[in-house]
């Protein structure tokens, strides 16, 4: 019985190791499916809009759906399908149709923060996840409706 018990203990240890590995593999696979690390892009505040580009490296010819949140409030969504030849020239995309542009948002004059997210639908389409494109865009809205990108001012 003692030998049988020892065998059982070894099996229990092996099973624990196998299950730990299984959980690890599942965690990685789930992360890759829910938050695939294939989205590249950038956003900034221009005088009249929040604009930028985004490419899905896993499907470089697809147009990516984007959503904009200002001060953590959903403000709209759009398809990144506008012409951005500069993105192709820089080698980030295979074609130029990856730009997005949200018109000057209807927010109070003052400083705000915009975040643009790429929308990713899971394989079964039952779940969607958002991934931030570039960095949060800090901007100031003037009384006349024009925007000033505070990120680029900081860099200067």
């Amino acid at each position: 019985m003692k030998e049988a018990a020892n065998t059982l203990v070894r099996i229990l240890i092996a099973k624990s190791v196998a299950e730990t590995l299984l959980v690890g593999v599942i965690a990685v696979l789930f992360f890759l499916e829910a938050f695939p690390p294939f989205f590249h892009g950038w956003g900034e505040a221009t005088p009249r809009s929040i604009a930028g580009w985004v490419v899905n490296d896993a499907a470089p010819w697809d147009r990516v759906e984007v959503q904009i949140f200002i001060d953590e409030t959903f403000m709209g969504n759009s398809l990144a399908d506008r012409s951005r030849p500069d993105v192709v020239a820089a080698g980030w995309a295979r074609d130029q149709w990856h730009g997005f542009e949200f018109p000057s948002p209807a927010v109070e004059p003052g400083e705000h923060e915009a975040r643009v997210y790429a929308v990713h639908a899971g394989i079964e389409g039952t779940k969607r996840t958002l991934q931030l494109i570039g960095d949060p865009i800090r901007f100031r809205r003037n009384a006349d409706g024009t925007l000033v990108d505070l990120n680029s001012r900081m860099i200067r």
């Binding site: 019985m1 049988a4 018990a5 065998t7 059982l8 099996i11 229990l12 099973k15």
Partner: peptide
Amino acid sequence: LMLASHRA
């Protein structure tokens, strides 16, 4: 595990 345990 269950089968191994029955055997043990």
